[in-house]
């Protein structure tokens, strides 16, 4: 990129920032206030934590598509690394290995807690899945878990299970009148079912974003 284009880009960036700052400072209050609406319908959502209610009930459709985005990223990474062999993991220092071994049960426990807590307070499937994935990355760095090769059937099932369960529930609820229209009585149970599937699959997918790519040689 030449100097002129650089200069123009930086100039446009500065102008945009200035205009946005001015716009935010003079912005009047919003006409619609959704937190009130969320609180009003929270009792019918099946969970007590408003963010989880939005994520899995009121705007659950976003979340379903978002899981598809993750699967898609993983698929493309598999396409890119197709046919390449994983290099054996380098031996890590024993201190890290010991630490990783001790941390593992703790990590699984924490993921379980976050999943359970999501219904009432901060936490939920995404945080729990991320913790599981972090555990897998830690194990890999400690040399205790090899990089993954092309996924076998069982792994593929684990990767897609959360997505397919979510989709099946969404479609099955069509009988209620619309996609993802939970009956208030069973909403809590269905959301927990979806979140349990998502925790497993998101953990595997997020770990896969790392483990399918690391240590690969063309």
């Amino acid at each position: 990129m030449n100097r002129l284009a650089r200069g123009v880009t930086v100039g446009v960036g500065v102008a945009l920032a200035v205009a946005l700052v001015v716009a935010l400072l003079e912005l009047p209050a919003a006409a619609i206030h959704l937190p009130g609406t969320v609180a009003q319908h929270l009792a019918q959502s099946g969970v007590e934590h408003p963010v989880t209610a939005v994520l899995l009930n009121f705007r659950g459709w976003d979340t379903l598509l978002e899981v598809a985005v993750l699967l898609l990223a993983l698929l493309t990474l598999l396409t890119l690394s197709g046919g390449q062999a994983a290099v054996a993991a380098v031996e890590a220092d024993p201190l890290l290995q010991g630490l990783a071994r001790k941390a593992l049960p703790l990590i699984i426990l924490m993921a379980g807690y976050l999943l359970w807590a999501g219904a009432h307070r901060p936490g939920g499937a995404f945080q729990a899945g991320a913790v599981l994935a972090a555990g897998a990355v830690l194990l890999q760095l400690a040399g205790l878990l090899p990089a993954w090769a092309a996924p076998g059937r069982l792994l593929r099932l684990g990767l897609t299970l959360g997505f397919l369960v979510f989709l099946a529930v969404a479609a099955a609820l069509l009988g209620q009148g619309a996609l993802l229209q939970y009956p208030p009585a069973s909403a809590g149970g269905l959301i927990l079912l979806i979140e349990a599937g998502l925790t497993l699959s998101l953990g595997l997918i997020l770990a896969g974003l790392f483990l399918f790519v690391t240590g690969r040689r063309a």
């Binding site: 963010v51 976050l114 901060p122 936490g123 939920g124 995404f126 945080q127 991320a130 913790v131 997020l206």
Partner: peptide, 9 residues
Amino acid sequence: DIALAEAAI
């Protein structure tokens, strides 16, 4: 919730 996700992810 976002703080947790931001730190982990």
